[in-house]
Every structure is written in C-alpha cells, then in structure tokens.
Write a protein that binds this DNA or RNA. Structure first.
Lengths: 410, 410
DNA sequence: GTCAATTCATTGCAAGTTGCAACCAATCTT
DNA sequence: AAGATTGGTTGCAACTTGCAATGAATTGAC
C-alpha cells in the first residue's frame, strides 16, 4: 500500500546520479564527460567522479580521443564493449533464439533453434539452458538474462496465458525455472511486442522527439505496446497491449478470447490467408493459389497482384480502425507498425494513413507520425537487451528492491 | 530533444525530499513526523528539518497532539488549513463554477453561475474573473488557479478543439487569458475527465492499492482518463482519453469527428434520449414520453420502467464494449464509471459487468474492479485542486521550469 | 506521588557529496 | 614557440544526511 515515494539519502543521490550519467551515455551514444555534464546539468567534476568507478567496474570504457575541435581532445566514453554481457532469449511458437550483447548493445552472437512440434516444455527448456550455459561459460560475466515471450503474458506472475497453438507450455513457468537454474544472474522477462517497442523507441522516437509512441506488432497476432517517455506501459498485471483483442465490431463474431469482433479476427495473418486462399480458388487473375503462404502473399502484394492488394488493403482498413481508436484513446505522436506486416511496405502504410486521416480530427492527425518498423530480425531480442540494461544500470528498477527480495525468497 | 534526466545536486536532494515529505503527508492525511519518517525511509531528523521551513511558510501546520499511545504524544501535521488557498474554475457548456480550497483540500466555497446561451466568450470571461477577483481579494494568498475544461482539449496548447455546442469559445484561449489577467498566480489547466479521474484515484484507487485506473466519464459525452501510479496519462498533445470517439463498429455511421461507429454515437446522453423519445411516442407501457428529459429517464430507470431499462441496458452493453476494449488495451485493475450515468446505480453497473465478464479472459476480469463513482458534484473541481497542489508542492512539475519560462515569455 | 519506561521530536557531530574555482593536459592558431 | 582554447582533474568550502545522544511528554508500576 506504500505508494509513498522513498526519500533520497546523500548516498541515494550518488546512486541516482550514476544512473542519470549512464542514461545520458546511452542516450547520446559515445560522448565525452563534458557532454554528459551539459546534458545532465551535473558539474564536470561530478561526472568525472561518477564515471571513475564505472570504468573500474568495467561498465564504461574510454573509446578513443576524438573530435577535431580547438583545445584538448575529449575522451569519448561508451558502455563497455567486453567483459560484461547480457544474454537474451526470445521464445516463439515454433522456435527460440538466443543472442549475446555486450553492454554497448552490439549483437555479438545470435542463433535460432527450432522447437519440434511435439517437444515438451521441459525438453525445450533443456535445449535453451544448454545454449545459455555455453554462452555463460564463454562470456564469464553475464549481468542479466532477458526473456521475451509472445502473447498475453502475465508479467506480474511471469506466466503466459492463452498461449494458443502452444499447449505444451501451459503450466510450465519459464522465467521462474530460469531463475532457479541461474540463481546468480538476474532474469528479466518481457512481452515480445513491448520489447520490440523499446527498440523502436530508442532508434526512432528519441530521434523524432516523440513523447508517446504506440507500437503495433502486426502479423501472426496483433499486439501492441505503449511507450510513454521511454517507459513501456505494462498495465496492472503486465498484460497491457492486447490490441488484437480489442473489438471493432460490437456485433461481430465471437473470438476465442470471449470478446466479439476482435481486431485480430479481421487482420491476423491467419484470417488474411484464409480470405485470400478462399478467393484464390474461386477467382482468377491472380498469382495466388489456395495453398499460398504468407511469403507468397507478400510477394504478390509487392508485385501489385489484384487479389493480394484487395485483401491486404482490407486488412489495412481494419488495422487503421484499430490504430484510430488508439490515437483517440492515448493520443500518441508516433505510431510504428512492426512485425511481419511491416514487410508490406510503403503502399500498405499509405493505405493505413489514408484511412486514419479520414477518421481522426485534423489537428490530431497532423501531430502523429505513422511509420513502418525497419523490420530487422533482432528487434525483439534487442528490446530484451534494452530492458535488462535499463533494469540493471539505468532508471529505477521496475520492482522495488525489497519486493524483489521477497519474490526471490518466496 | 534533451530527454536525458537532470542530475541531482545536493540542493536538489533537499528539494526532492521536501516533495517526498509533502506527498507522504497528502497520502496519509494528518500524521506525525515519525510516520512520515517510516513511510519515506528518511531519518526522523531529516523530516523534522524538512518540515520546519514548510511550517514557517504556512504550507504545513501542526494540528493537535493526538494519539493515546504509550510515550510522548505525536504532533499531527497537515497541509495548512488557512493562509494559502487554491482556486478552481470549472467551465461547462452552460455554466461555470468556481471553488476555493485550502491546501488541505477542504472545499471552502463553491458557486455555480449560468452562462447565457448568447453570451460572448469575452463577457463570460469578465464574469469569471470578477468572481476570481473577489476570491483573491478575500483570501490574499492564492497559490494557484486550476482550470477544468470539457471536451477534446489540447493541453499542450491549452486550447479547446471541437467544442461542439459552444461555438462562442472558438478562438478564445481561456487559459492564456487567465494567465495574462493573473500574472502572479500560476494557472494550471486540465481536461475535466482527467481532473475527475485524479479525485477518484485519491479517494479510491489508493485505498484499493490499484496501480492502473481507468476513469470513464459517461453522460453528455463519453470521456475517459487513464491514471497510472497516480499520474494521469495526458498523451502527446494532452488529448488522451477520447474514448467517446473510439469506434465499436467499423461500418457504423460517420461521426462528426470523422470516425465511424464512435462509442459516443451509441451511448451519449443525446443518443439515449433520442432513442427513448422515439420509442416512447410509439410504444405504450412506459412512463416516458416524447419530451422526457434525462432526469425523467433516470427516475424511470430506477423505478424499473421497461422502456428505460431496455434502452439504458442497450447503452450499458455498448459502454461495456468500450470498457472491454480499454481493459484489453491498457489492463487496468480498477475501472470507475463517473459523470451522469453513475446515477443509474448498481443495476446499471451489474449490467455492464456482465457484458465485460463475457468478453474478457477470466484471469483478467478477476483482476479488475469495476465500480461507480460516488458521483459527488465537486469531483472535477476537486481534481483541479489536486492537480494544482501536485504541480505546486508534490511530484515533479509537468512542465520543466525552463520551458515554462519560455512559455510565459513567448 | 514519584520513578522507570516508552515514544516522539530535536540537536550535536561525523561522513560524504556536490559545485566552484583553480589547475593540469592537450591541441590549434598565430 | 608562445598564447589561446577546450577538456579533464583536484583542492576546498558549503551543505545535507544519518546516527546517536539529548530533551520532552506521557503511561504505568510501586
């Protein structure tokens, strides 16, 4: 019940300032003490004194004297490139991937492994931990493990609910199991769309100066994440972002989740494929067939195939409706559309924008950028890295120290 | 672009701790230094030293030695009951109200004034400032003026957009005008639903330990506000919360706002009345007539009138759909339904709950409380007071000092 | 009725952090 | 080669915090 903030002791200040310095360092990339000083408002002396122990601990390192200015060259600082690492695991329905990052965020190693359709959770967990083991043995100092999980994910309890298509994970609590396996390494968990959103925020929102970003993960499912001033909105149980189970049709069909007319029923990959396959067998004049898969649709769409265009644009219209609702509800200044559908490209985006523009007040539409994600494969893994880095070194930890202890004990 | 946090100087700590102490004081109501000490984690000595100047400045006062414990009686502290005041103005479509609060939050005086239908904004502004003048003359020290405005309200620019039914306010920027009129008094503005939400948060969410609260203001329009850990989500332009212009029917009628199938088209007071009036003239067996107004409907509903029940429950179903969407999108643990519709009472609420329960996953539904607002008249005014108090004495100000200066200068 | 016990509030003191200013270091310009 | 310029470091004073001792106010026991 104690919602009261904690006061700051003199020691707390130092702690706080250390985090501020590191946050600035991450924000600005490689930069000098001086630059950190002006960005944070702290005295240069304070920055110097704050950085010293960070260098000793191998968290920060000096990376060359740069800059052709007038006086003394400044020494650029950066998060350490070696010595300390962050491992990230992304669990998907049919595969998992593991990546190793240094603190600076360089992706050192990434590998994807398939999950056999009949593999038990326990067995998959064994495979996962074998990979993690080998990384840990090689890297020595691992500061944290970030885990990104798909779908409705009870972050508070760290359990996945309604993991459709993956019944074998039901009842297996991945994160606690990982904690038990690696008691010395902090394990952080995140919903995959939220992780991806963090990456987009870092690489995009900050550049644009956006304050409220909506990330829409559109593909197999429709997920989303709201990022406000760099913080992901997690919701009371960590379940926020289930845009796919938001209804755009009160009297629509009932969805598995119980709701009617869910956005996901109109726009998910499955529904798109189903519609296309059905019409492909009926109508002619299309390169698509009744057994085409998503990649075929992508190709057909980019090549201007009529059927593909029609159906993809239908999806665009519905997706635009979902986005419109979000815009009116949370008033973002940046909307990023990611995951598989980002592959449809600018034409798809324009279609969405057109619909949104029609449905939103002009003064609101003018203030919101709608963009596609760069759609790089490692968006989610990188988000997990950012999450771990933030939890470990920047801002305030998501959970208070005490309750985290309680959690570990219980 | 400087999203980087500011570092904390030694002086900043004191500042921070003062805010923390005051926040604790507000949180716990009247309480002793000792209690503040344990709540904030600050040393008793620090609390004593922090409180002293606050008492000198008339912000805090000692209110009696209470408590029948064992040793020395503790001195209860409270925000000052006199000497410093906060004025609040609520602008509505056909009236405005002004209230005076002391820092403690006691409502000292409140009056409502009608706005003549043909009155110009300038003239109404004259009436408003006359009232404010008299208050200021009487109260001497006014720490801030809080203004609550209805409808889509560009908090960033402090302008109201789309103020349907009140064209006379178009082009008249109330808040800047107030700032110009009272240059010595900070004027804070807020959207009325957001203000009401703040009040509900203080009086409800905190008691329940809720983390994410959705306040739905249902009546003439359908507004909403999302409160996360005591902070209202304002959105990039301060326009967040336009739940009424969220669509629940992709192919529905076009709304004035441009969108289709807006929730407001199904659930606003006007649409409810329209439906009832139409059917009242056709069908019999109801106490309602084709010229009944909202109060009549309220009465008929509570008395179990069939037509009223049917139509109100239809509204409940649509409202439930809107709420369901919010639950899936932002995952609140408390939903409070306020404004006029709160008057429909428990039966109405149960109807909503039933619909929501059907449409939401059980593990989510179980975690969210859905309740009615107490529906007291001063919810919005009190919210404005809370906003001013927070801006002035608690937490960090919404706008950075610099930019506020820039704003005042520009 | 007095004295110990208890609890809240205040005041001395040492530790430690910050900002300022002076100083050192490294580079460019003249 | 000397001065100017800029970045980084160190000495010093001011200040805040926490700890511990002291004071204040009350209860309960003898």
């Amino acid at each position: 019940m104690k919602i009261v903030q904690r006061g700051l002791s003199i020691e707390g200040v130092q702690n706080h300032n250390r985090r501020v310095i590191l946050a600035a360092l991450q924000d600005m990339g490689a930069c000098s003490r001086k630059e950190i000083s002006v960005a944070t408002g702290l005295d240069q002396a304070t920055v110097t004194r704050g950085i010293a122990p960070l260098i000793d601990d191998g968290i920060v390192e000096e990376v060359g004297l740069v800059r052709g200015g007038r006086g003394r060259r400044s020494i650029n600082l950066s998060f350490s490139g070696s010595g300390r690492y962050i491992l990230c695991l992304r669990l998907q329905r049919r595969s998992f991937s593991v990546a190793a990052f240094n603190l600076r965020g360089d992706l050192l190693d990434t590998t994807e492994f398939p999950i056999a359709r009949d593999s038990s959770a326990r067995r998959t967990f064994g495979e996962i931990s074998a990979i993690l083991d080998s990384h840990i043995a090689k890297l020595k100092q691992v500061d944290g493990i970030g885990v990104a999980v798909p779908g409705p994910f009870l972050e508070r309890d760290e359990r996945v609910i309604l993991m459709t298509e993956s019944p074998q994970w039901q009842g297996f609590d991945l994160v606690p199991e990982l904690r038990a396996r690696y008691p010395d390494v902090p394990v952080h968990s995140a919903h995959d769309a939220k992780a991806a959103a963090l990456t987009e925020w870092r690489h995009r929102a900050r550049v644009l100066g956006a304050k409220v970003m909506l990330y829409v993960s559109a593909g197999q499912g429709i997920g989303s994440a709201l990022v406000v001033d760099g913080h992901v909105h997690r919701g009371a149980q960590g379940l926020a972002g289930e845009l796919g189970h938001t209804s755009i049709s009160v009297d629509g069909d009932r969805c598995k989740c119980g709701n009617r007319g869910c956005l996901e029923l109109f726009t998910s990959r499955i529904s798109l494929l189903r519609a296309i396959r059905k019409r492909a067998s009926e109508a002619g004049g299309t390169q698509l067939r009744s057994d085409s898969d998503f990649v075929d649709v992508l190709k057909a769409y980019t090549e201007g195939d009529d059927l593909a265009s029609e159906e993809v644009h239908r999806v665009a219209r519905y997706l635009a409706q979902g986005i419109t609702n979000c815009i009116n509800f949370v008033n973002p200044d940046l909307v990023v559309i990611g995951d598989e559908y980002a592959g449809f490209g600018e034409r798809f985006l324009d279609e969405i924008k057109t619909h949104v523009k029609k449905a939103v007040l002009p003064s609101i539409f003018d203030a919101v950028n709608i963009e596609l994600s760069q759609h790089c494969e490692d968006t989610v893994l990188r988000g997990a890295y950012l999450d771990v880095l933030a939890q470990t070194y920047l801002g305030s930890p998501r959970v208070e120290p005490e309750s985290r202890v309680a959690e570990a004990a219980g």
